[in-house]
Design a protein around this nucleic acid. Structure first.
Lengths: 198, 198
DNA sequence: GAGACAAACGGAGATTTCTCCATATCCATA
DNA sequence: TATGGATATGGAGAAATCTCCGTTTGTCTC
């Protein structure tokens, strides 16, 4: 469980085929609105594959959903690592951090459904995923550059914590926050709006 | 589901009795180390009650676990509302906010097991609970007092987000953060350590 | 090609969560 | 204290997640 799934060194042809079939079936079901209650039995049935195969390929529900999210995360990662500033390199750390948080807001709001599904399948999986590792490392680097004496590892966790899918969803649906308001909120947080506290 | 359970205006005597038996059984099982995999069937069996009764009383797993946490939260709430400063009233807002966050660190670390269980039962339940409402309102009030022009509702969510049980657990177990380090991290966050970002 | 071995498949079934409703229990009223 | 109706009970069973393992399929070697 909680397995991150990258194609192993040499994966048999039938395994690759089935991985595709399962991902396609799951994507189709999610697109069809069966997101909230996505049953792996049903995925297997639609993919025309045994349930055991789904579990062998993806470990558990969370693994399957993370695999579905993987493509978007690769794109995001590429924009951060080699895209144009201010998200990509060659902007100063402050601007990059701001752009990074804003982009994450859009990503989190846009993928809300799948992210919620992943979280409900296994809340701790987020912190064990390659994608969180990347986000934490990137934010940590920028913070360390801005403030060499701060606890960058903690602050990176703290800045990423509000992207927990259920909180984003709660803010959007219950509190009625717009993505712009959330972005502005992060600006305030990062700009030391609370500084007088003490 | 996600039901917050306060004793209804007039609850029948057998209902009250069974509520107690179930809570006692659940507490006993958790204390006995069966926390990670606490089965409601087993709770029912130990409480000598039908499964249906457990669900009627508590709605679902999350409801039962929140009920187990309730007592601690009442105590915490009382300390905040009418305890001695700096956590209680009659300290300035900055000191109260700091004390509040520090106390929450201790509470979150101390109740880690039960909180994880609650989160894994239903991640969004946290944001719908009376206890989160209280924390959000309290932090929001203090923030508004410190910075009347800030978005207190968002910032309160953002300051509470790092208390997500799976993050706290990850920081304690995987990153090896001590409670003191987490408290110091919150101090940096609140003191505007990141301010030069921009 | 044929054989051998590892890898993958599939689906029966164990486990768990939660629902439903026929039955049992409580209690307000008279 | 008898009674009627609202409330609560309990366990069978529906639905979902995940495991286990006998069988099948790929792939590597000769």
């Amino acid at each position: 469980m909680l397995t991150a799934m990258a194609a192993a060194p040499s994966e048999r042809a039938d395994a690759v085929r089935n991985r595709q079939k399962i991902l396609a079936a799951a994507a189709r079901l999610v697109a069809a609105g069966a997101a909230e209650r996505l049953s792996l039995d049903e995925v297997a049935r639609v993919a025309d594959v045994g349930v055991g195969t789904v579990y062998r390929r993806f470990g558990d529900r969370a693994g399957l959903v993370f695999a579905l999210l993987e493509e978007q995360h690769q794109l995001f990662r590429a924009r951060v690592v080699e895209g144009p500033p201010p998200l990509g390199p060659r902007a100063d750390a402050g601007d990059r951090l701001r752009a990074f948080l804003h982009a994450l807001v859009d990503l989190s709001v846009g993928q809300r459904e799948l992210l919620l599904l992943a979280e409900s399948s296994s809340p701790p999986a987020r912190y064990l995923s390659a994608s969180y590792d990347f986000q934490h490392a990137h934010a940590g680097r920028l913070i360390a550059e801005l403030r060499p004496d701060a606890d960058a590892a903690f602050l990176a966790d703290a800045l990423l914590a509000p992207f927990a899918p259920s909180l984003i969803d709660h803010q959007c649906r219950v509190r009625g926050f717009s993505p712009e308001r959330i972005k502005a909120g992060f600006d305030q947080l990062v700009h030391g709006t609370l500084e007088s506290a003490r």
